[in-house]
């Protein structure tokens, strides 16, 4: 599979990454090479194989329904780029 410039732009947009126009060709080449490396997987048949999402064959542990967290807004928002009246601010969202 070759990742052409159009596809690179599409993926970059989906991933919300601004890529400069002059860098597109470089990404296209590198990503194509990586995909070719990845496609070596096709050498092995996996028809009857169960996908493995996790290294350990365990099940989810559950926590009790208890409130354990206290308000730390001031601390958390001290690292925020822009806040006002306790809210995080972003450029206007139009629904």
């Amino acid at each position: 599979m070759t990742l052409d410039a159009e596809t690179v732009k599409k993926i970059a947009r989906l991933a919300r990454l601004k890529i400069d126009d002059q860098a597109i060709a470089g990404y296209s080449k590198n990503l194509t090479n990586i995909l070719q490396l990845v496609e070596q997987m096709n050498a092995v048949s996996t028809d009857q194989v169960e996908p493995m999402a996790h290294p350990l064959d365990a099940s989810q542990r559950l926590r009790e329904d208890r409130v354990t967290e206290v308000n730390q807004r001031e601390q958390f928002q001290s690292v925020a780029p822009q806040v006002q009246d306790g809210l995080y601010l972003v450029p206007k969202v139009i629904e």
Binding site: Q82, D85, Y88, L89, V90, P91, V93, E95
Partner: peptide, 15 residues
């Protein structure tokens, strides 16, 4: 929740 009022050209986010 996104709050669209009260902020100049900005949206406030309450999580």
């Amino acid at each position: 929740k996104s709050l669209h009022e009260d902020f100049h050209d900005m949206t406030g986010i309450d999580l």
